[in-house]
Design a binder for these strands. Structure first.
Lengths: 356, 356
DNA sequence: AATCCTCGCTAAAACCATTTAGCTATCGCT
DNA sequence: AGCGATAGCTAAATGGTTTTAGCGAGGATT
C-alpha cells in the first residue's frame, strides 16, 4: 500500500468536491474547437512560413487558442524539436554572492529577453557535482550551457560529451573557445590614469600585490592582466610605486594590516588597492591614523563592490562588469557562435576617494 | 573544425568521414542490447517493485545501460509521468542580492539533495513579468513553485491557474497557505535580551523606527513582528528606549545622520539598529565623535549582512536565516504539504560590538 | 478529354519513456 | 489428461507536439 507513489497519475477526472484540477488544454483541443487538424493548428500557431492555410483558418485557430488559453507543452515539443528554450547556468559558487550575483542577474535578464529560461546549478567546484550538474542539464535537453566561475580563472570542465553550445563566463577552458572576461588590462590602465589625471604621480602604494613575494604563487590570469595594465600605465606616466604590499587573501582585515604597516614607514599620497575589500580595511586604518581621504591620501580600487558606495567618502573604483558579461553570455549562446574571447570593458566609477 | 561541438544536433546520421556525433542513446537501444523489450528495460531501470523480471534480466539491462551510458530523456518521461524533477524559484529580485542570495543558495542546496533542479526567474515585482514567469515555469511542467520575496511581505500572485504545489518564501499570500518566514518576534526579543544580558538596561536608542512618525506608513509584517518582540522584551526587562529615531530607508547614510542627531542631545549607552546597514552608518558617526565601541556605546543589529563581519569591532547581529529558509522551502514542496506558516529561528551572531 | 498544377488541408509517423493488458510456457495438482 | 496458477516476459497504447508525405478538388493547360 505504501507504494502508492508508484501509481500512475490519476488518469480520470477527480471526484467532485476535490480541488478542481482541470486538465491541461492541448493542441488537439484547439484544433477541435477550430474545426481543423492538429497539423493545421500547429503550423499556424508556430507561425510557420510558406504554409498554404487560409486566412480564415489562421483566424479560427488563433481564436480557439486564445479562448482556451492554450499554452504549448514544452516538454512535448522538445521531444520533437530538441529545443527547450532553456539554458543552464552552472557555476562553482552562487554562494560568494558578491561576485556571482551580477553574472546571474545579467544572464537572467538576457535569457528573459530572448524568451528563454535559466536552470541554475551550483557545483562548489567539486568534480563529482560538476558531472552531476552537467548531466542533469543535458537530461533536460537544455539549449546551451554557461559555465560561470566566481573568480575568473581557468575552469576544469569534466570530460563528458557535451553536444550543445557552451560559453565560459568569467573563466576559460581549453575545451570551449568562447569565453567572456572583464578587460582587466584596460581596467588596470584606467586605475592608474585616474590617479595621473588627478595629478598624482608620486607616492603611490600598491596594495595587494608584490612581485617578489608573489612569484610562483597562483594568481588568476585576470589578476595578471590587471597588473600588466597597471604597470604599463605607471611606466607610461613615468613613475613607479613607492611600495608594494601583498597579502594572501584580499579581505578587509588584510587591507587594514597592510595599510598600518605602510603608514609606519612612509606617508603615501595614494593607495591603489586591488579590490574594494582591501580598500575598506585601508579606510579604517587611515581613519585611525587621522588621515583624510582624499586630501591626505587618495584611493582607487577595483570591483565596485557594494561596500564601495557605503564608504565615506565613496570609493572610486574600477568596476567588474558582471551584469554586462552575463547578458553577453546569453547573446553569444543564442546568436551566431563566434569562437572568440570577448573582453568586456570595466566601468570607471568615480566617487569621493579621489580629489578632482 | 575546432567548433565541432557547436554544430546543431544533426537530425540524420552524418555523412561518413565527418566526426561521429552519436545520437542520444535511448531506452530502445538499451533494450535491444540487453535482448529484452523496452517495457522490461523501463521497469528495471526505474526500479519498479513487484515486477517479476528475472535477476538475469536485471543484470543484462543494467549492464547494457551502463555500457551505453544511457540517461533517460526527462522530457519524454515527463510526458507520461508529469514529473520533471524541476522546480521553479520565482523571485521579485535576485538583484538586491545581499537579501536574495541566501534564499537561492539554500533552495539550490535543498534541490540538489533531493535530486531536483531549479529554474530561477526574476520578475522585478512587475505583474506582467510575474505572469510570464509563472507561465514559462508551468509550460515546462515544473513540479513545484517557490515564490520568493526579497523583503518579507505579502506578495501579489497573479491570478493564473496554478496546478502544482506552491510555497511562499519570505513572504505570504492569501492564496497559498504554506509560507516560510523568519521568526522575527523571537529575533526581536533576542536582540533586547542580548543587551540586557550584557548588563545594559538604560540609555538604549532605537534606530530605524519611531512609533509616532511611522504610524500610517507601510512597513512589512515582519518588521512589525520584530518590533513587537523588541518592545515586549523591553517591557519584560523593565525599561524603555531613551530615544527612537526613524528613517525612511535603512541605508548607511541614514544610520550616519540619525546617529549624529542622537549624539547632539544625549549620550547613549547602546544603539539597537534595525539593520546592519544602519549600524554601519552609526559606526562611522560614532568613530567621528571619538566614541569607542563597545566601551562607550554598544551596538546590536539585525540581518547579519556581509558588512557586519567587516566592521571593526565586528557587529553583533540577529541574522536572517535565509539559507535555512530556502532549504526548507524545498523540503516543504517535496514533502507532505503542511498548510502552515513556518517560522525559522533567527541566529544570534555574537561579535565585538557588545561588551561581554 | 486527359493531364498537370496549385490550393488548402489532413493522416500518420516520429520523438522517447511509462504503463496497461495480456500472452506463452511451465509447473503443480487432481 | 485437464485445469489453473504463476513466472517471465512483450505488444501496444499513451502523452503532446512537429513534420513528412500526400489527398481531393478545382482550375488551367494541352
Amino acid at each position: 500500500m505504501a507504494n502508492e507513489e508508484w501509481r500512475a497519475w490519476p488518469r480520470k477526472r477527480r471526484k467532485w468536491g476535490e480541488v478542481l484540477a482541470k486538465k491541461r488544454v492541448t493542441l488537439a483541443d484547439v484544433a477541435r474547437l477550430a474545426g481543423l487538424s492538429t497539423t493545421a493548428a500547429s503550423m499556424i500557431l508556430t507561425g510557420r512560413p510558406d504554409t498554404r492555410l487560409s486566412a480564415e483558418a489562421h483566424a479560427k485557430v488563433h481564436a480557439a487558442a486564445a479562448s482556451l488559453g492554450y499554452r504549448p507543452n514544452i516538454a512535448a515539443r522538445a521531444l520533437r524539436t530538441d529545443k527547450t528554450r532553456t539554458i543552464a547556468f552552472i557555476s562553482d559558487y552562487v554562494a560568494t554572492t558578491r561576485f556571482a550575483s551580477g553574472l546571474i542577474r545579467g544572464a537572467l535578464a538576457g535569457a528573459e529577453q530572448a524568451q528563454h529560461v535559466m536552470l541554475v546549478l551550483e557545483t562548489g567546484g567539486e568534480p563529482a557535482r560538476e558531472i552531476q550538474a552537467i548531466e542533469a542539464a543535458l537530461d533536460r535537453q537544455v539549449d546551451g550551457l554557461i559555465f560561470a566561475a566566481m573568480r575568473a580563472r581557468e575552469v576544469f570542465v569534466p570530460d563528458i560529451a557535451i553536444n550543445v553550445p557552451t560559453v565560459m563566463l568569467n573563466g576559460t577552458s581549453p575545451r570551449f573557445p568562447v569565453s567572456i572576461l572583464p578587460d582587466e588590462y584596460r581596467g588596470g590602465r584606467a586605475a592608474v590614469e585616474l590617479l595621473a589625471g588627478a595629478g598624482i604621480r608620486e607616492g603611490i602604494v600598491l596594495l595587494g600585490y608584490n612581485e617578489k613575494e608573489e612569484t610562483g604563487l597562483f594568481r588568476s590570469e585576470t589578476v595578471t592582466n590587471r597588473l600588466a595594465g597597471i604597470r604599463d600605465a605607471m611606466a607610461a606616466a613615468g613613475t613607479t610605486f613607492v611600495a608594494e604590499l601583498s597579502c594572501w587573501n584580499w579581505e578587509p582585515d588584510h587591507g587594514y594590516d597592510l595599510t598600518r604597516t605602510v603608514l609606519k614607514s612612509l606617508k603615501p599620497r595614494a593607495l591603489l588597492c586591488l579590490n574594494d575589500r582591501l580598500a575598506f580595511g585601508a579606510y579604517q586604518a587611515l581613519d585611525e591614523a587621522g588621515l583624510a581621504i582624499p586630501e591626505d591620501v587618495a584611493l582607487v580600487s577595483f570591483d565596485n563592490d557594494e561596500i564601495a558606495s557605503y564608504l565615506r567618502p565613496g570609493l572610486t573604483t574600477i568596476g567588474l562588469p558582471h551584469e554586462e558579461m552575463g547578458r553577453m553570455a546569453i547573446s553569444l549562446l543564442l546568436g551566431t557562435p563566434t569562437p572568440a574571447r570577448v573582453l568586456v570593458e570595466m566601468p570607471v566609477v568615480l566617487r569621493g576617494s579621489l580629489p578632482r
